[in-house]
Design a binder for these strands. Structure first.
Lengths: 215, 215
DNA sequence: ACCTGAACACCGTTCAAGT
DNA sequence: ACCTGAACACCGTTCAAGT
């Protein structure tokens, strides 16, 4: 591996800057080359293609995450981890869209996975149950982050939904009754609430394993 | 509005076929025009641009959903609705990626929203609590669908993750302990389990409102 | 050994021109 | 009134050519 003026790390760093500025849609190999002051083809000497470069960008973004190690009650520690991980993923929403592979996602977040497993291991005895509980929370966090990254506005934020619901009241009687209560949603608050529900239920389950499955 | 050989509905129908075949990335206005046997520019007489067309595609896909009206225990009806809605969204994962606006998503799924609200209204007294409980479940479903659509493989499906985790055992003691239990995940099963946790917790909450918030 | 320019096969979209 | 061809400003990537 020869010493190079332009190494992979610099290409990734500049790529992340550009993506943060112009979004993933406005990002191109040619613009990246221009920002690097280099011929577009030079990048292909370091990365096989655009996909491989974006892989490296996503990996670098995930590696930035530092799992919080708060003290306090167990449930608070779990919620902290969930909230912080979601915040990190949402902050880098453009690169979150690049994660097309679950293995890459979890292996890129080893610190978070380690911390999450440790917390679940505190209340679950069996390793299978521990991993399952971890997965419930982990994918809940990722799902919520994807919602935040994909769906730019949650219903009601823009206004007008109540009116639309009320107008459909004839066909959908349930809508008319609740239309006026479809006010703005705070995505963070909704996430925190759902997380609390899950954490409380996981905590309760751990105390009384095995519980009868519902279906 | 004159009678036209090529109306919006046909363009949308053919677009959906092409997207189902080649994916969203392989879809272009030029290929669509070729499939329609028409000049690319003719499409622009019906739709302002590609974005407007994709909007119509997403709306049409959502409109296809028929909310199930199963009988049986309350929790089963709720889980049915959640599972069916997720299945519909995942089946059309390419168009799910088009939903960039929460209002469009919910107003495109009025039947599901109506049914969900009706179910939650059965156990919650106040409309605010009913809407909140509905939102917890609705966005949980959308989040899970986005995970399934964005993250093509959940960890372990490909194998190799256990080894990767074990290798990092030195830095992350928790990982080493659970590495061998990171087997394949069935996304549907994980979704069903998480949904059960949420539904059970919502049901319990409804019986004892208001409950003390955790934070 | 390392970098590049020209070229290929695509895009979405504009706009003047055809019938 | 309705449709289209040529053109513009972009893409990712290949490959022969330069130093």
């Amino acid at each position: 591996m020869p010493t190079l003026d332009l190494d992979q790390d610099e290409i990734v760093a500049v790529s992340r800057e550009l993506i943060a500025e112009t979004g993933l849609d406005g990002f191109s190999m040619r613009k990246l080359a221009a920002a690097l002051g280099v011929n577009p083809m030079t990048i292909y000497l370091r990365f096989e293609n655009k996909d491989a470069l974006l892989d490296a960008v996503a990996t670098a973004s995930l590696a930035d995450f530092q799992a919080p190690t708060s003290n306090g009650p167990w449930a608070t520690q779990v919620v902290d981890l969930a909230v912080e991980l979601r915040r990190h993923l949402v902050a880098d929403r453009e690169t979150l869209r690049l994660l097309g592979d679950g293995d890459r996602l979890t292996s890129g977040l080893l610190g978070a996975v380690d911390r999450g497993l440790a917390l679940m291991g505190q209340i679950y005895d069996g390793p299978a149950e521990t991993v399952k509980a971890f997965r419930v929370l982990f994918w809940h966090v990722v799902g919520s982050a994807l919602v935040a990254g994909t769906v730019s506005t949650l219903p009601g934020t823009q206004g007008g939904l109540s009116e639309a619901f009320a107008a459909e009241g004839a066909d959908y009687p349930g809508l008319g009754r609740y239309a006026e209560h479809f006010g703005p949603v705070d995505p963070e608050e909704l996430f925190a609430y759902t997380t609390h529900l899950l954490v409380n239920r996981l905590e309760a389950d751990a105390g009384s394993l095995p519980e009868e499955a519902l279906s």
